[in-house]
């Protein structure tokens, strides 16, 4: 009896979100004609789905551009952010010099730099990658520094008592202990990098999903605009998912240990 209601409870829990999503889509679908809204104002989900199929090639080619910008910006964030975080962690004067500046820079809304980046870097990949980089860089640096600093000092003494040098201490203790935090930062960063790339495309572009949205707007093609929003979301989720996959392979979460 108790077992059965527990089973029912878990079924309700797993189905709650999909049922909710389907309900919203159905309500959306039926209320558009009921309210007499034109498809230029609010296209139905079925129409958006149709455009996802008919315009697949257009969406796919533009996705590749945007995905490249996101990954390049994020990758740059990792390759510059991690060494910077290490320098901040290991070298105190550098931390003193760098940390306040980083925080000050973080108060600038990166989005506001987009027009300037176009001015300096032109209309190509440059400003989009730069924006994706700038926006994803900060969480990567901070989460890495925090991850390194949060290590139990006892663990360092433990391996030192075994004769460990700093190189070994880093790879055996510091890095594995910091990884959960580092990946937390990566996941925030990749979502932000998508935003950076799209904003960059809004400002000036000839390709990409943001550019496609502007084109759709100009042609009053609201259904394509929505379809592009769907694709941008899928891109963000997919990149996040890839990071989660890498994380589950290489990172042992402390929370699981508690």
């Amino acid at each position: 009896m108790a077992k059965r209601s527990a089973w029912r409870e878990s079924l309700v829990e797993t189905l709650a979100a999909p049922v909710m999503a389907i309900a919203i889509i159905v309500i959306w679908q039926v209320s558009v004609p009921l309210l007499g809204l034109s498809e230029f104002v609010l296209p139905t989900p079925s129409l958006i789905a149709k455009r996802l199929v008919t315009d697949f090639h257009l969406l796919a080619t533009n996705s590749v551009y945007t995905a490249f910008e996101v990954v390049a910006g994020f990758g740059l964030g990792v390759f510059i952010g991690i060494p910077l975080a290490l320098a901040i962690f290991y070298w105190r004067p550098f931390e003193r010099a760098m940390y306040p500046m980083l925080v000050a820079l973080q108060t600038i809304p990166k989005i506001a730099l987009a027009p300037l980046l176009v001015l300096y870097l032109g209309y190509g990949w440059g400003p989009k990658i730069a924006l994706a980089f700038l926006i994803s860089f900060f969480p990567i640096v901070i989460s890495t520094v925090v991850g390194l600093q949060s290590l139990d000092k006892g663990l360092v003494n433990l391996v030192r008592s075994m004769g460990s040098n700093e190189w070994q201490t880093f790879f055996k203790i510091r890095l594995p202990a910091a990884l959960p935090s580092v990946f937390g930062g990566f996941k925030v960063a990749i979502s932000l990098a998508v935003i950076g790339a799209i904003i960059g495309e809004y400002v000036a572009a000839e390709k990409g999903l943001g550019y496609l949205q502007l084109q759709a707007n100009a042609r009053f093609d609201t259904a394509l605009n929505f379809a592009t929003v769907v694709v941008i979301s899928v891109l963000g989720v997919a990149l996040y998912f890839i990071l989660s996959l890498i994380e589950s392979r290489f990172v042992f979460q402390r929370e699981l240990a508690k």
Partner: peptide, 19 residues
């Protein structure tokens, strides 16, 4: 002057590498 290879240490907390 530095940790000796013939010395083993057990601390108050178990200090497991939880990963």
């Amino acid at each position: 002057r530095k940790p000796h290879p013939k010395v083993g240490v057990v601390f108050q907390t178990d200090l497991m590498l939880y990963w």
